[in-house]
Design a protein around this nucleic acid. Sequence first.
DNA 1: AATGAATGAGAATTCATTCAT
DNA 2: GATGAATGAATTCTCATTCAT
Lengths: 205, 205, 205, 205
Amino acid sequence: MKEILARRKEAERQERIRQILKAAGRLFLKKGYTNTTMRDICLKAELSTGAVYFYFKSKEEIYAQICEDIFMYLDGMFNRALDPDSKPAERFRILADTYLQFYTENRDQWVVIKEFRNIGLSAPLLDRLVRLDMALFARLQETVDQYLREKKLTHRWNSEEVSVAMWGSVEGLLDIHRMGFFENTSLDLEEMIHKQLDIFLTGIR
Amino acid sequence: MKEILARRKEAERQERIRQILKAAGRLFLKKGYTNTTMRDICLKAELSTGAVYFYFKSKEEIYAQICEDIFMYLDGMFNRALDPDSKPAERFRILADTYLQFYTENRDQWVVIKEFRNIGLSAPLLDRLVRLDMALFARLQETVDQYLREKKLTHRWNSEEVSVAMWGSVEGLLDIHRMGFFENTSLDLEEMIHKQLDIFLTGIR
Amino acid sequence: MKEILARRKEAERQERIRQILKAAGRLFLKKGYTNTTMRDICLKAELSTGAVYFYFKSKEEIYAQICEDIFMYLDGMFNRALDPDSKPAERFRILADTYLQFYTENRDQWVVIKEFRNIGLSAPLLDRLVRLDMALFARLQETVDQYLREKKLTHRWNSEEVSVAMWGSVEGLLDIHRMGFFENTSLDLEEMIHKQLDIFLTGIR
Amino acid sequence: MKEILARRKEAERQERIRQILKAAGRLFLKKGYTNTTMRDICLKAELSTGAVYFYFKSKEEIYAQICEDIFMYLDGMFNRALDPDSKPAERFRILADTYLQFYTENRDQWVVIKEFRNIGLSAPLLDRLVRLDMALFARLQETVDQYLREKKLTHRWNSEEVSVAMWGSVEGLLDIHRMGFFENTSLDLEEMIHKQLDIFLTGIR
DNA sequence: AATGAATGAGAATTCATTCAT
DNA sequence: GATGAATGAATTCTCATTCAT
């Protein structure tokens, strides 16, 4: 009996946390971190002014948690997408598609993790996030590495440079899309990503 | 006589404006827009608190002016770089090199114009800057267009998509570089940009 | 049967109250009244936030109760110490020793009752405590009075002034000791109190 | 001309500081440090909410400044009172009278410096004040030392213990007076201090 | 009785902007 | 034009107290 109650409590707690993160995430996206006040977050999360502090130590901490969750979520997506039995050649497309899917379905979150370096987070929180970002990149590099080996291209390219080049081009494309440069054109983001990947894979041979 | 005085006044005025923009630019980069106070700017520009308001209506306006100047400056760089007699094929490299040079020599400014969309500017100022950003992109697209025509590639690619793909890949690379991913690696930014361009031009054939 | 239960209830209630007062007392001493939160008190007393309000109306009330208890405790000490058969001359030393013992063994409490006037208590509570403080002083004056009569000194001193002088000198000495002025010296508190009493008794002859 | 202006500015600045310290001092006395808000201080000093921060970094700093000023003031009083040519025997009375005068004329301040240890100041500020307090005490000890030497009493008493005993008794007396124990009695503070001093000087022979 | 999450008034502090001099 | 002190709304965060469970 007691246990059931405790479990419900915990569930409600998690629900509140989710509520706050969701509210904060949207506000951060719409108005930017600094222009979002704790008051805004509380109102949107339908909580009183002080209640949020029961779940998070500070505004910064909320932001960091949002970022961390996003990184974890992305990591999970990649985990599920990257079948260890798939051929390296296919993995590029899978990686790119997964990332594209993430961008399409969670654009708010994508923007958030693109900007965490620029909001003046305190060192400990910033470090944690930087580490997560790097871990995600290491994922890509590993895939690139396997591909280059299989295709016997290691004498011409090293995985570092190819990874950086690929990541840069995809990320850059998404950035441009987000800025609204695809509006009023006939361009389609998914098609572009695929074309760019093709150009790339053709180019490195 | 009067005119000379008036001219000197105007010159002094311009000098003050330059001072303020320079001071503000550095501070915005180092501490971010929100964490930079007008007081900081005034101190660094060696002016009194109120004086700045004689030259700019608001903090926002200073920021917008900085961005505008950077866009103008970049535009000028491209103008000078793009010799109308040069072959379209060469122009890619020239464009990329020019942009790279801008990034290398004025990274502060590069960062500033990458972020103007995220600081919560009021609509009129934001619009003006967005327009300038788009104008710069139109520049690139024009060059791409000429290239594709010359190389008879228009049946396979349209200039929009190639421009976006190229711009995206360069911008993405610079972004990654700025995030510090080149540190602790053997990568060289200039080399990477060139390689990526090569991959690209090879890829679209 | 019912009565036994009721008695147990009451015993438990008293135990809780004791718990709260003990926890609060320590915290008030260590961090000061204002810097001690109800949360702190509840945690230390191993109670939930709301439970305390079942036993005390407010934080202030807890503080006042602590003071009151200390006054009662001190009063009890004096009662036990002052044997009605002892000679007035001895009583001074007994009083001083008792107070010194109280200071030494319960310095926390001593500090608490020294400061109740400065924490911004509401008038009714403050009044109650002031009255208790005065009652304690009356105790001393009575003893002084008896002594002066026995020694036939009433023509030179009245008990009011001697009481005040004595109390002031002991209290002042303890205060100085508490401020840390005895550290890094060869002074011993007990010795000092006795010497001062001697000086005093010699002085008033 | 410029200089005159600058001097007036400085004078006005000092006047504001005085205003703030005076307002804060009274409020701290009446309501206690913690119960006094910056808003209160601003209102009483006839300034807007933020203006005080132009003169003081924090509430704590205001408090510390008040204390420091009081210590300096007291030090000055002692300096003026203690004629180097006066006989050590007279100095006791002068010291006591000076301190009494300070208490009588500036009771608010006297209370303030009695309590600075209990309001939770940050370490650096607290240290500074403790040091000043000790310096003041050193003053007294020096006088006591000279007296004991002159009266050839050094074999029976050391200056440390006599100083502490004297200081304690005077301070304790003032404390009792402040608590209101002289009200409703025929006691006179000045007379009491003098009597106590007499008792003391008689007692240590 | 007991819990502890929630409330919300209020605290210290900051800072873009104004305006008397 | 220039100064810089002053303004005061707004911000983050705290905490005594309440109340549904």
